[in-house]
Design a protein around this nucleic acid. Structure first.
Lengths: 196, 196
DNA sequence: CTTGAAATATACCGATCGGTCTACTTGTTA
DNA sequence: TAACAAGTAGACCGATCGGTATATTTCAAG
């Protein structure tokens, strides 16, 4: 039973963080956008840092659910699902409210202070990245790739690169090229396994 | 004849922006680190935004010089230079003071306000990305790739992806896999041209 | 009807933000 | 030596920052 106020705060914060970044959005801005009193926010979240982390964790969770659902619905074979991940990526990037990978952006703002005083937001980004990599590895293994871990690293790099490129400047053909590259890498990994 | 004080300010700002991000570093911090008076900074730069942009433009300039020199020294053929770019990327990422692509980080902080009020720092990031893409296209064309523009988009995506991945969390094998992928894409692009 | 938790509005805290201003000290050059 | 540009230290500006405190209201459960 999540409190409705708490949800409203998270919704507002997510919206503002997405469109303006984490550090650029002050608490007051979140309060106004959520229509909630200052006291209420600090009743649900001990600090802004905690709010940021909670937003990221919720984004990670919803992204996993949403994306796995789309991919599993789009294709039945592991091979088909690997490429379907990039089709889902296209849907995300083509949306007008795409502002880049929020986990990479969080790492850009919080991930570079010091190894000892690592910000928890960075941990969320690391977890997100690790989950995607594990998912790709699982699918690659099921598809019969010779080296599923290597394939997962390659596809994951293409995935992150496509988001970063689109965040800086959208290029109409960039994602097509990336998808084509992904298919070549997948085919090569599977063919290499078949011919041994 | 660049003023030594101005250079000291840019050096300090670049160092701090790299290790802590743009928004997280205040003017006072730059002054202390540069050993320069407040008045002096505002004598050389009209605003912090302007300082940020100038730092990015200088980083872009030095990166181009440094990287082209390394690549041209490492290989003589266009094909060899394409892969040498990724070898140079490895050198950058392996450095202990690697904190991710500063242009992607700038885009993460400044690039998402509004299309109308686009921050000039985003323009610097766009220019950086476009230059790399043009360089890759030039090399791809010289190497005899069937579709040099497409190859450049693919390699550029891999390039950005490798930096983003390493920024979130360094993975010992990620760059090896990316380089291997790059070589496969290059070979495929050239072979496809040769057999027609 | 009462109790108590949840939410409200708002004042307040010290600190920091980017940026301006004044007054003084250099060092070089005419 | 006089003039001048460049730099210094530091006070100061209004605004905003994240976070706390106080006092009041709302409303459902016992």
């Amino acid at each position: 039973m999540p409190s409705p106020k708490r949800t409203a705060i998270l919704d507002a914060a997510e919206d503002l963080f997405r469109t303006h970044g984490f550090g650029a959005v002050g608490i007051q801005r979140v309060l106004d956008h959520a229509g909630v009193a200052r006291r209420t926010l600090y009743l649900h979240f001990p600090s802004k840092d905690d709010l940021v982390v909670t937003v990221l964790e919720r984004m990670d969770h919803t992204w996993r659910e949403h994306t796995t659902a789309r991919v599993e619905q789009a294709a039945n074979t592991p091979r088909g699902r690997l490429t379907a991940i990039f089709a889902a990526l296209r849907d995300d990037i083509d949306r007008p409210d795409f502002y880049g990978c929020m986990f990479a952006r969080a790492a850009a703002e919080y991930g570079v202070t010091s190894a000892a005083t690592a910000h928890p937001a960075l941990a969320a980004a690391v977890a997100h990245q690790a989950w995607i990599r594990a998912w790709l590895t699982r699918l690659g293994k099921a598809a019969g790739a010779a080296q599923p871990e290597t394939l997962a690293l390659q596809l994951g790099t293409l995935f992150d690169g496509a988001m970063t490129c689109a965040q800086v400047k959208r290029h109409p053909q960039a994602l097509n090229a990336a998808i084509h590259a992904a298919e070549m890498l997948i085919d090569a990994a599977i063919d290499h396994a078949a011919q041994r």
